[in-house]
Amino acid sequence: MIRIEKLHKSYPIGKDSLHVLKGIDLHIKEGEFVSIMGSSGSGKSTLLNIVGLLDEHDEGDYFLNGQLIKNLNEKKAAILRNKFLGFVFQSFNLISYKTALENVALPLYYKGINRKDRLKIALEYLDKVGLKAWANHLPNELSGGQKQRVAIARALVTKPKVVLADEPTGALDSTTTDSVMDLLKDINDEGMTVFVITHEEEVAEQTKRIVRLKDGIIISDELTKPAKAV
């Protein structure tokens, strides 16, 4: 699903440049539940942005669903994102003036699906994350956990190949963290590839494979024990 070979990325800082990713090799197969661990500055967010086509890499190869990602223009990137990827962000990134339902339906709008159908599909996904009753609420009327579940519904609504979650529990307390992680596990159980970025051990332990990143290189890559029943 995702194949990364010798990936490099630098950011220019003034006259100097900061070498963030220093040759990453990573292969994620379909249906995997992977977490990227690392302290801040390890390059994990950069990696996710590149994998999510939100940013471009400098060197190396990146294959998404077998397709080489190179010199994408914005339009192509937008189409690929819409088709293959769903995003969950730490700060939820819901549009404040749209209701939960409209936020979930937004990716479908850009996919060109008509209003009636997309609201119907969006409602199904809200139901799936247990928020059908909250469909017509604005984000500021929802709790953090609810917002994140709306965001997850939004990430899933286009039936992507991969869900990319950037610190999905970073702004949540432990109870809601568990409910969000359970939701991600459920999604993974249905066959979706889930790619989580986190710095919390407890979160990483709930995934099936942990890749540890430090100073722009992978220091370990191992499978976790089968998740314990909670």
Binding site: G52, L54, R81, N82, K83, N93, S96, L106, P107, T158
Partner: peptide
């Protein structure tokens, strides 16, 4: 800007 970023992340093309 942020709203536009969200829209882009969920698949809005620059043209849109």
């Amino acid at each position: 800007t942020k709203e536009l970023g969200i829209r882009k992340a969920v698949g809005a093309t620059p043209k849109a």
